[in-house]
Amino acid sequence: MIGTIFDIKEMAVHDGPGIRTTVFFKGCPLRCKWCHNPEGLSVKPQVMWKKARCLNCGSCRKACEHEECRPFGRCIHACPENCLEITGREVSSRELAAELRQSAEILGDEFGGFTFSGGEPLAQPEFLLELMAELQGFHLCIETSGYAQADVFRSVIGKLDFVIMDVKLADTELHRAYTGVDNGQILENLRVLQQSGPPHVIRTPLIPGITDTGENLNAIEELVGESVWEKIPFNAAAGAKYEMLGMEWFLKK
């Protein structure tokens, strides 16, 4: 089946063991105010406009006959500075797997495996499961918010070698306020992961004044229990991408 991704990254060194290739799924049910991959939020392909490089030459405003340009109202094949880039590519699981296997072939014994990130890979569960089946035999890892129905979560993690799962906020109200969703399902999935899942690590992004409070970290520490827990420093450079997508960044201030 067809899924939507927005990037494939070679030589991902922070996404699990070994030299990995990470696939970024497009679309996420959460709306974390600090999200550093805003192009992963909507499942639809989007235009990214690198405004700083734009010469206002008008090339993209001229009428074109490209089918793929229609939804955007601009020609995406005309910019001499490449200011307009489409983020989001629809691809079949088979085609994607063939593409991904290339890096495994190049790296041979040094290849670590594949990591599914996003966006939220669990938001495209059937596509993800198909892709995983295509890549059977490789070390497979997911980076997830853990926000998925219990049966989806179970069936996916049961076939994975490693799970990187975020626990961002322990408090339900704060979680809803800052990510847009309830954390009940996430915490339930966390328990499933801890009780019957593969090796895993819990990650907490340290967002100043939001997730890095003593209260939150203490509460998460309790939830983490025996699991490995990594605290990830805040990436302030992410703000630039919001502007390219014509979005407002909550943390701008």
Binding site: I19, E110, G112
Partner: peptide, 17 residues
């Protein structure tokens, strides 16, 4: 990419490749 020991080792493995 060299932020931690793990990253250093992986770059070394890329050179080996």
């Amino acid at each position: 990419i060299f932020a931690d020991e793990d990253g250093v080792e992986k770059v070394g493995r890329l050179v080996k490749t």
